[in-house]
């Protein structure tokens, strides 16, 4: 089990280009679709939790999922698996050569990868919306959140606090009726 976890998160670490959010579709594929370690709902709950914690969401997600599956050792193995590919690659770069970003081959490859990364982040939003049971009536919530965070610079941490409080408030109001 631990070995399976390690391999899954090693893959996740090795194919994440461009920061934590780019990791999400790959984690979902490995953890939800392929290995069924978490349900879609659990996965979304995990995303909410890790985004409200301080620190890198990529490592948080690995630790959280690892803990859910195999407690302490699971979290350790997943974090190690996710961090190891970058550790080795960066170390090699630091030791051997430093001008990788000026390498024309690398630049060409990345010109192809960058728009793909964006597509891989945007498209799963459609599936997440289904999992979150978003209807035409509640569509304004994710749209408003996306606008204030992306263009007005609101911190995701406040949005999460607000949304959580909103959920509790809504359930209390509904009960009163």
């Amino acid at each position: 089990m631990l070995l399976k976890l390690f391999i899954a998160f090693f893959k996740i670490g090795a194919f994440t280009f461009g920061g934590g959010y780019a990791m999400i579709p790959i984690i979902e594929k490995e953890v939800v679709d392929k290995n069924h370690w978490l349900s879609k709902e659990e996965f979304m709950d995990m995303l909410a939790v890790v985004q409200s914690l301080p620190g890198p969401i990529s490592i948080h997600s690995s630790v959280y999922i690892g803990y859910k599956i195999s407690k302490f050792w699971g979290s350790l193995v997943c974090a190690l698996g996710a961090a190891l590919p970058s550790f080795v690659i960066i170390l090699l770069i630091a030791i051997v050569f430093t001008d990788i970003q000026d390498n024309p081959t690398i630049e060409k490859v990345f010109k192809g990868i960058r728009p793909a990364v964006v597509a891989l982040i945007v498209v799963p939003v459609i599936f997440m919306a289904k999992t979150a049971k978003i209807t035409w009536k509640t569509l304004w919530i994710p749209v408003a959140v996306a606008i204030v965070v992306a263009y007005l610079g609101f911190s995701p941490a406040y949005i999460i606090l607000l949304a959580g409080a909103g959920g509790i408030l809504f359930s209390l109001i509904r009960k009163d009726k």
Binding site: G18, M44, L47, I121, T131, A144, A146, I159
Partner: peptide, 21 residues
């Protein structure tokens, strides 16, 4: 209840990450 409120917001947050890219 808190998670019910969080889910639509998380969808928005991921969308935001995509938009800024």
């Amino acid at each position: 209840a808190a998670f019910k409120g969080l889910r639509p917001a998380v969808v928005g947050l991921i969308l935001a990450a995509g938009l800024t890219l």
